[in-house]
């Protein structure tokens, strides 16, 4: 699914990622943990093609293709999805128009015809139920005036609409109360299949009680310093990063 080899990346001349190696297979869930400033969010930004970052070395193969040579929108259409840590508010652009543009861009990329208005609304309804997203929110402008929990739920709703192969959840647990966390995690789990994969970026064990990872990686100072099973997250919870990094 995803192969990251010796990935180095910098922002404004400062190197943040210093040689990341990571293999992610279909059906797997990987957690990436680490202290602030370790490069967790940089990794998701670089994988999705955020123009603020520059890749200085290394390669990334996504489903047999060179990911880094693709534009951000092509990466998305190829099945890469990022649940943003800070989802962006877009006043005046309705969720419906936004999602229709996204879904049909992906369908065109796959050689499929655009969905009719009826088919599209039916799909919206079905996916909304998955994350218990209120119909009223779906009628509003993208993320405008949404609470923190509603924004994260809306991210998972978009993930459900786009059915990505690889989803990166960047601190999806931040700012969520326990009920919202459960709804979001259940949504993610329902979307999980043997054909797709998930990267969960988080500070805390808490989210991993709900989304159970197959592998846990500790990122520190731009490199993966330890990899283990789900028990590594528990160990981390007890010893803190100081005991491991």
């Amino acid at each position: 699914m995803l192969e990251i080899r010796n990935l180095h990346a910098s922002i404004a001349g400062k190197e943040i990622l210093k040689g990341i190696n990571l293999h992610i297979g279909a059906g797997e869930t990987h957690a990436i943990m680490g202290p602030n400033g370790a490069g967790k969010s940089t990794l998701s930004a670089v994988l999705t093609g955020n123009p603020a970052y520059t890749v200085t070395e290394g390669e990334v193969i996504f489903r047999g293709k060179d990911l880094l040579s693709m534009s951000p929108e092509v990466r998305a259409r190829e099945g890469l999805f990022l649940s943003f840590q800070y989802p962006v508010e877009i006043p005046g652009v309705s969720m419906t128009n936004f999602m229709r543009a996204a879904v049909n861009a992906k369908r065109e990329h796959q050689g499929l015809p655009a969905l009719s208005a009826g088919e599209f609304l039916k799909l919206m309804r079905a996916k909304r139920a998955l994350v218990e997203l209120d119909n009223k929110l779906a009628g509003r402008s993208v993320n405008e005036g949404f609470s923190g929990g509603e924004k994260k739920r809306n991210e998972i709703f978009q993930m459900a609409m786009l059915e990505p192969c690889l989803s990166i959840l960047d601190e999806t647990d931040s700012g969520l109360d326990i009920d919202a966390l459960r709804i979001v995690a259940e949504g993610v789990n329902k979307l999980h299949t043997a054909e797709n994969a998930t990267i969960v970026i988080t500070h805390y064990q808490r989210l991993l009680d709900y989304i159970v990872p197959d592998f846990v990686h500790i990122l520190a100072d731009g490199q993966i310093v330890r990899t283990g099973g789900k028990e590594l997250a528990l160990e981390l919870e007890q010893t803190g990063y100081a005991g491991i990094v």
Binding site: N50, P72, E73, A76, G92, F98, A102, A105, L162
Partner: peptide
Amino acid sequence: IDESALFYMQQRGIAPDVARQLLLAAFFH
């Protein structure tokens, strides 16, 4: 144009020119 909105839309598969059109339609709405 709000660059963070533009990137957010691109991350959902929307081409930049289409994203710009949506943002400007919103601007003129």
